[in-house]
Simulated assay, not measured.
Amino acid sequence: MHILLLSLLEPYTGNATTARRIAGYLQSHGHTVTLLDTRKASADSVRTMIEGSNIDAVLGIHALGAGRLLFDLPIPTVIIFGGTDLNEHARNPRDLQTMTEAVEHACALVAFTEDARQRAENLWPECKQKIRVIPQGVLTHPSAFSLRKAIGLRDDDILFLLPAGLRPVKDPLMLVEEIAQWHRENPRVHLVIIGADRDPTYAQKCRHIAMALPGIQILPPIPADDLHAAMKESNAILNSSHSEGLCNTLLEAMHVGTPVLARDIPGNRALVAHRETGMLFATPEEFSACAMQLRNDSVLRTHIITSARKMVETEYAPDREAEAYAKLFSELSW
């Protein structure tokens, strides 16, 4: 089968990581996969590609970003829900209408978590039977890169790492004042934010604020293997998003053995059980309390690291994800 995979393919984004991983699975099961960046596509160009390249099916990641391109196609379509489509864009009536047309036309729908499945069912109850849950697989390959050496930190400095694109939904500024104050009290404490400028105006604001605060750095994105290495030598990986589907970076952090501290939102609760596979916080003050517990309680830290890695290796194994997508396309009918 020749599958057209539609996704945001901007480097260093979660959607791009997911798209390339799933494409690899499908290719390993004998399918031909053509990747197309949704930023560079229109409904007409997709239809033209389908007609000229003998495409048999289309897989789109994100019900709005890809869904807007999937109306009335003459071949089977599958939509994978992201995070912002269900959590943010569904609040906009025009976006919701666009997603509704795509979802109703699709042959199959995929959610990463049970929470996402429930959200989708609430939005489109008539499509309930088409939705299946396929948890993301996680792959990490830490390189020899050292973030500590690159920015001049000592081995005993406390490094919090927040991998996130600079855009409002990721709220990378949530913890900067809290950690800057911690740095004033203990200069060994540092926060490094690594991510692409997804919203140029907002990114400029982030950099302006970070430059004025001690102990806070914002760095451009780095290759995945280097990011995995940076995660491995960090004291904790942070997530402060307003909204998430299933956060790749939290999965990757768990896989390399670094504890995660995540904002208490539905997408993160689907992955992080408080004091079991990570720690959840709702406010900057709660973050500090959680971080101090992790720092001072080695038994708790070891328990979280061990439990999280076991969960990822069993529930988010790449082989399980690969088989699930292979099964989906083998059952696809029109």
Rank of each mutant, 00 (worst) to 15 (best):
L261V: 15
A291N: 04
I61G: 09
R320M: 05
G82W: 06
P318A: 13
Y316E: 00
L5I: 08
S146G: 09
L300E: 04
G195L: 08
A41G: 09
H141I: 01
I209Y: 11
V78N: 02
Q27R: 13
H274S: 10
E315F: 00
F112W: 06
H208K: 15
R301I: 10
I179P: 04
R20T: 04
P74T: 05
G83K: 11
A19R: 02
H208V: 14
G267W: 01
T84R: 13
S288H: 03
L261P: 11
G60A: 02
L36M: 13
R295G: 07
W334C: 14
I265K: 00
P93S: 12
E101A: 15
L328S: 01
R263A: 11
L271F: 12
L8C: 11
R275D: 13
V46G: 12
P187N: 14
H242D: 00
A43I: 09
L5Y: 09
N268W: 00
P284M: 07
A270K: 02
L213K: 12
Y12A: 04
V189W: 01
I61E: 04
A106D: 00
L246Y: 01
S42K: 06
V103C: 07
T17L: 14
W334P: 11
S7E: 07
H105W: 14
L173A: 12
H255D: 15
L280E: 07
T48R: 13
P318M: 15
D199H: 13
H141M: 05
L332C: 01
T18W: 03
A203R: 11
P76I: 08
C206A: 06
H89W: 05
A289F: 03
E313Y: 03
G60S: 05
T302K: 10
A180N: 06
D264K: 14
P221S: 14
P163E: 12
S45R: 03
C127Y: 01
A41Y: 03
L153M: 13
V133N: 03
A16M: 07
P266F: 10
T113R: 07
F112P: 05
G257C: 02
C127I: 03
T13M: 06
P266C: 10
T100F: 12
R132V: 15
R301F: 08
V138E: 12
A116L: 07
A102S: 04
R94W: 05
F71W: 04
R20Y: 02
A164P: 14
N186W: 01
V103A: 07
C107L: 05
K205F: 14
N268S: 02
E177M: 14
F81A: 02
F160T: 01
G257Q: 06
N15G: 01
S53Q: 06
H141L: 04
V110K: 05
K40E: 11
T100C: 11
D199Y: 10
Q129L: 13
I158C: 08
R68S: 12
Q129R: 15
A150Y: 13
